[in-house]
């Protein structure tokens, strides 16, 4: 009897426990894992999210005109495991707490998060590429204070090798030769090899 009175008392005090959702507002936990969003400004296209995606919901497809790539997440395949968020090195891909997912069949294949991520031309040779974010580059080169991080993030991998050979190699860059594309390909690799460096040879 006393237990029943306790329940009755609580029910009178707290009101109905039914969530008013389809007719009213509901609650959403702050850390609820809902729809995936990607920030095209900081995504660098490494593809680790696509690699770890359990359901294969992520597609990264470069455009044929080399202007950039399309980053697509299909919500109808995403299993909301948040592996992409966990592994993204720049924090570009996250999960919102938006769970409003019911949609009619006509929208099935449009139920996606699609962002265009543009390429940026290399500062030296103009090859289209996706630059590293500055914060990541600083972290990578933390133990190499003599490397000019602001400069090398604007270069494509090939020009970065040339830049490295020019500034850091123990072998002096031939003063007479013009540091162009043709001179840059053979010379630095050779210089690295003679210096016993671990740089990959081409």
């Amino acid at each position: 009897m006393a237990g029943f009175l306790k329940v009755l008392f609580h029910n009178v005090l707290d009101g109905p426990s039914t969530d008013p959702f389809p007719l009213g507002e509901t609650f959403t936990p702050q850390r609820f894992r809902g729809k995936v969003v990607v920030d095209p400004d900081i995504c660098m296209g490494c593809g680790i999210c696509r690699h770890v995606c359990a359901a294969g919901a992520i597609s990264i497809s470069p455009r044929p005109d080399q202007s950039g790539y399309d980053f697509t997440v299909w919500h109808n395949s995403c299993c909301l495991c948040a592996q992409c968020r966990h592994y993204c090195p720049v924090g570009a891909i996250t999960l919102t707490n938006d769970w409003h997912n019911a949609h009619p069949q006509e929208e099935k294949y449009n139920w996606v998060e699609r962002k265009f991520v543009p390429y940026v031309p290399c500062a030296d040779c103009g090859t289209p590429m996706r630059p590293l974010p500055l914060s990541i580059a600083r972290r990578i080169y933390l133990n190499n204070p003599d490397i000019n991080v602001e400069r090398i993030i604007t270069l494509c991998p090939k020009c970065r090798q040339v830049e490295d050979a020019r500034t850091h190699s123990s072998c002096a860059w031939p003063a007479a030769a013009k540091p162009g594309k043709t001179a840059g390909e053979g010379a630095p690799a050779k210089a690295d090899a003679t210096a016993g460096d671990a740089a990959p040879k081409e």
Binding site: C78, N101, A102, Q105, W111
Partner: peptide, 9 residues
């Protein structure tokens, strides 16, 4: 023929 999709896992 499906009419409504409710994705989520």
């Amino acid at each position: 023929p499906i009419d409504v999709n409710v994705p989520g896992c």
